[in-house]
Amino acid sequence: MSAGAFTAARGAAWLEDLDPRMKLCWLACVSLLSVVLDSVVGLGVLCALSSVVITGLRMPARAWGLLGFVLAAIVWGTILSQGLFYAAEPRTTLVTLLPPWNLGGWQLGGLRLYREGLTYGLAQSLRMIAVTLAGLAVCLSTTPPRLLAALTWLRVPSAIGFMTVASLRFVPLVLGEYQTVRQARWLRSGARQGINTRPWQPFAQMRVGIALLVPVIAAALRRATALATSVAARGFDPAARHAPYPPLRMRLAEGLALAALLATTGAIVAAKVLYWLYVGEMYYRPTLRPLYELARSWM
C-alpha cells in the first residue's frame, strides 16, 4: 500500500504533506497563545505566522477572496463595535460622531470613537483571525484518515476522534442538501431565496425558514443511522484503543520544528505567568525585571 493512499488527493502542497500531529500541535499552540497574549504586537506576530502557514494550502483564487473578505469583515466589525462601545476606563475620545443631545427631556450621551476601544477591538480580532487561520490550515490540509490517526496517537478517545472525522466528511454533504432544499423551495412555488419573501410577515418567514431545515435534518439523521449501523457491523467499539493507522512517521526536520514550537510556546506562557504573578503581587524577583518588561511591552 503506497503512502499516497492516505495523503491529500488534491496533490500535496507542503502543508498537506506535514505530519498531522505537528499540525494539531500548531493549532493547540496558536489557541493557547491567542489567550495568553494581550499585546497587539504579539498577537499581530501570531496572526502573521498563521497567515504564512495557511499559504501552504492549495485553494482556488475565489476561495482565497472569500476568506479575505470574511477576515476583513471580522476585523472591521470587531474594531468598530469595540471602538464605539468601549466602556472601561481610562478611555480617550478620538472622534465625536454625535454630540450629547436632549431628546424630550432625556439627556443622551452622544456617540464617540475611543482609542482604547479600537486597540482592544484590534487585539480581539487578531485573536480570532489567528485561531481561525490555524484551524482552517489543519482541517483543509489534512485528510480524515491522517487526522484520525493523529487524534488516536494523541490519545483522544476513539468516539470523539471518529465523530470529528465523520463530521468533517459530512459537513459538505449537509450544506449541499440545504442548497438543494432551497432550490426545491423555488421549484415548488417560485420563492427566490428559499424562504417566504413577504417582508410584512416576519414570523411566517421565520417559520418557513425553519421548515426548510426539516428535510435536511431528517436526511442527516437517516445518514447518521446508516453510518452507525455500518460502523457497528464493522466492529467499531468507541471504548476501544487502537494503534494509529496509517502509521505516522515524523521526519527529523518536523521533529525539530515541533520541539522549537513547543519550547517557544512554553517560554512565552511561562513569561506571561511570571508577569501575572508579579502584577498580582504574588511573586517577584528583581533578576526577572527584563522579563517583566518584555512581557509588558510585547506580550
Binding site: 492516505f6 480524515p144 484518515p145 466528511r169 455500518s230 464493522r234 487502537h242
Partner: peptide, 17 residues
Amino acid sequence: QLTSTSVAAEVAFGLVN
C-alpha cells in the same frame, strides 16, 4: 456507509477495529 475519504483508509477501518 463510507467512513473515510480515501479508498485504502475505508478498507482499513474494519481491520483497525
